[in-house]
C-alpha cells in the first residue's frame, strides 16, 4: 500500500485542495485581517508533523489592512526559499484565544518524498514505531533539490 500516493504532505488548512492561487490566498488573508488576525510567514525544509515551530520569515505583521502587504512579503519569501515549505499563519490576539487560528501551506518543494515508518524491536514482542522524513537524510541546505 502506498502511504503517500500524491507525493504531497497534508498539513494545515486546504492541504487536500489543489495549490491556492495568489488571488485565493489574498482572499484568505483578507478574511483573517477582517477578523483582526496578525499574519506571519514561516518556512522549513523538514515537514515532519511534530516539527511544530518553523522558522519565521520576518516579524509577524500587525496592524495591516490589506492582503497586498502579506502577499508582498510572501513573494519575497518565495524568492528567498523557492524549494522550502512556506506557510501562512494567522494569530488571534483576542484575550482567551491568543493562539494560531489559521495556517496553510503556500509553497512546496518540487519533490516531496514523504515519510518512512521505522519499526524498532523492543523487549519481548514490543515494537516501537517512529516516522522518518526521507528529506532529512540529506543535510540542511541540500534538501530542496
Amino acid at each position: 500500500m502506498m502511504t503517500n500516493p500524491v507525493h504531497r504532505i497534508t498539513q494545515g488548512q486546504f492541504s487536500f485542495l489543489p495549490e491556492l492561487t495568489d488571488a485565493e490566498i489574498s482572499l484568505q488573508i483578507d478574511y483573517g485581517l477582517a477578523r483582526g488576525y496578525a499574519w506571519s510567514i514561516e518556512y522549513t525544509d523538514d515537514p515532519h508533523p511534530r516539527n511544530t515551530y518553523w522558522e519565521m520569515f520576518g516579524m509577524p505583521m500587525f496592524e495591516l489592512e490589506d492582503a497586498a502587504g502579506v502577499l508582498l512579503e510572501l513573494q519575497s519569501c518565495r524568492r528567498t526559499f523557492p524549494q522550502h515549505y512556506i506557510r501562512l499563519v494567522a494569530f488571534d490576539a483576542t484575550r482567551g484565544v491568543e493562539s494560531v487560528v489559521m495556517s496553510f501551506i503556500v509553497n512546496r518543494p518540487s519533490r516531496e518524498p514523504g515519510f518512512g515508518l521505522i519499526r524498532q524491536e523492543g523487549q519481548g514482542r514490543n515494537i516501537r514505531y517512529t516516522l522518518h522524513g526521507y528529506v532529512t537524510d540529506r543535510p540542511e541546505g541540500e534538501r530542496g533539490e
Binding site: D22, A23, A67
Partner: peptide, 26 residues
C-alpha cells in the same frame, strides 16, 4: 490531485504573471 489528469488551475507557485492577473481579478 496535482500530477493526475485534471491539471491544477495554477502553474508553479510564485509565477509572476499569474500573480499579477490573480491580483487584478481579486
Amino acid at each position: 490531485i496535482p500530477g493526475t489528469a485534471a491539471p491544477a488551475p495554477e502553474g508553479p507557485p510564485g509565477a509572476g504573471s499569474a500573480a499579477a492577473t490573480g491580483a487584478a481579478a481579486a
